[in-house]
Design a protein around this nucleic acid. Structure first.
Length: 256
DNA sequence: TGGAATGTTCGGCT
DNA sequence: AAGCCGAACATTCC
């Protein structure tokens, strides 16, 4: 489920619960919930909780836990177990529960902070963004979804950002005008900031660590809105497939 | 019943 | 090399 705004809200709700606390015990209830070697976490202290792209990074007094939520992963602060609880971190005053219906997500232990993905969309300066776009002979949509290009964007927000920037999803990255790149950067920062403030998008069952849903879905302009009149020009929103992902856009406002 | 779903990776092809 | 495509992962929902 989670993309950058959802991961950010999970981090913001989880951080005050566990920062400075000590893990008493961990449970990995399915083999898939852990990837690679996982040392004993019992007794390790939590130094920090942050976001790495759309992933959640827990800094320990020794090493890091990088949690990939993928399609259906959630982190919840609650002590009981659910049908799809795949792992738990148990503290003296409560527990972090990793629920993941499809089991695509996992925990990984790292000795050093991650650095394998591209820049954060909220931090990249417009000039750097333009320089990175200019050298890529790729369609914008798959490029923006590529976590090595930018870390944090997913299918919902790429569609919403391209609509706000009025740029076609299959536009070639290297051929965007300076004005369009600026519009794209502005739209990206503004849409993500607004989505974070709204608590993210809950389209099926996303909730933050306190179990609270997001409200940005009511501000979606194109995602999941095939056939609905564009709010800018009233032309029906179209759904196509680009790079194997459902892609929503306004054919009138977003010209090639 | 088949298809699609907020994601990523891998192998093969051009 | 870079980019594209299909398949795979597992489950639920319509």
């Amino acid at each position: 489920m989670p993309e950058l705004p959802e991961a950010e809200n999970i981090v913001r709700t989880l951080a005050p619960r566990i920062t400075g606390q000590r893990i008493l015990r961990s449970e990995f209830r399915t083999p898939r919930s852990r990837q690679g070697p996982m040392p004993d976490l019992a007794g390790r202290g939590v130094i920090s909780v942050s976001r790495y792209g759309k992933q959640v990074l827990i800094g320990l007094d020794e090493g890091f836990l990088l949690i990939e939520l993928r399609m259906t992963g959630l982190l919840l602060w609650r002590e009981d177990l659910g049908t799809h609880t795949r792992a738990r971190l148990i503290f003296g005053h409560g527990a972090v529960r990793f629920d993941d219906i499809r089991q695509f997500g996992s925990f990984r232990f790292l000795h050093d902070p991650p650095d394998h993905l591209g820049p954060d969309p909220l931090e990249i300066p417009p000039g750097d963004f333009r320089a990175r776009l200019q050298v890529r002979q790729r369609m914008l949509k798959p490029l923006l979804l590529d976590q090595r290009f930018l870390r944090g964007l997913g299918n919902i927000y790429v569609d919403e950002i391209l609509f706000r920037a009025r740029i076609h999803p299959v536009a070639l990255a290297s051929r965007l005008s300076r004005a369009r790149v600026e519009r794209l950067h502005d739209s990206m920062v503004m849409a993500l900031a607004e989505a974070i403030e709204c608590g993210g998008s809950s389209i099926s069952d996303y909730v933050n660590a306190d179990g609270v849903k997001g409200r940005f879905q009511i501000r979606h302009r194109v995602y999941g809105k095939a056939g609905v009149p564009c709010r800018r020009c009233r032309f029906p929103i179209r759904r196509v497939v680009v790079g194997q992902r459902g892609t929503h856009f306004c054919p009138h406002c977003q010209r090639r």
